[in-house]
Simulated assay, not measured.
Amino acid sequence: MKKSIHDERYRLLILRLIELRKQLQITQVALAAALDRPQSFVAKVENFERRLDLVELADWLTAMKADPQKFLASLDWFAETALAPTKSGPT
């Protein structure tokens, strides 16, 4: 299994976060301030040097005032897997 930081899905997630940050005209410095972290934290995530966990992703989206559900739905790979209807029945 590949390390998650090198997984194509993770890379697409970070690229989408960068795109969203730029669309919202939020600088790395402003985002870092909202997260109460140094600017280097944002840079390392965006340069694929540091991995975000689920809680950090939620904080990141909250700091950008972005809707987490809409963000995740914008990720084709996530929408196709995690949001797909599940089969119910005995396991």
Score class of each variant (00 low, 15 high):
M1G: 15
M1P: 10
K2S: 11
S4P: 09
S4Y: 06
I5Y: 03
H6M: 08
D7V: 00
E8D: 14
E8H: 07
R9I: 03
Y10F: 10
R11H: 07
L12N: 08
L13P: 04
I14V: 15
I14A: 04
I14Y: 07
L15F: 01
L17F: 01
L17N: 03
I18A: 00
I18C: 02
I18E: 03
E19P: 01
E19K: 09
E19D: 15
L20T: 14
L20P: 05
K22F: 05
K22N: 04
Q23N: 10
L24D: 10
Q25Y: 15
I26S: 02
I26V: 14
I26C: 07
I26G: 00
T27R: 07
T27K: 11
Q28N: 13
V29P: 00
V29E: 14
A30N: 13
A32S: 09
A34D: 05
L35Q: 07
L35T: 06
L35S: 07
L35Y: 03
R37Q: 14
R37A: 14
R37K: 15
P38T: 02
Q39K: 12
F41S: 03
V42A: 08
A43M: 08
K44I: 00
K44N: 14
K44D: 15
N47L: 13
N47C: 06
F48G: 04
E49L: 09
R50L: 11
R50S: 09
L52C: 06
D53N: 15
L54S: 12
L54I: 09
V55M: 12
V55S: 07
V55F: 07
V55Q: 09
E56G: 06
L57S: 04
L57Y: 02
D59L: 12
D59G: 03
L61M: 12
T62A: 15
T62E: 11
T62Q: 14
M64C: 11
K65H: 13
A66C: 07
A66D: 01
D67I: 00
D67L: 02
K70A: 15
F71G: 00
L72V: 09
A73M: 11
A73V: 11
A73R: 14
A73H: 13
S74Q: 05
S74W: 04
S74G: 14
L75P: 08
D76C: 05
W77M: 03
F78M: 08
A79Q: 08
A79I: 06
E80T: 05
E80A: 13
T81C: 01
L83M: 13
L83I: 01
T86D: 02
T86K: 10
T86N: 00
K87E: 11
S88D: 04
S88M: 05
G89L: 06
P90K: 00
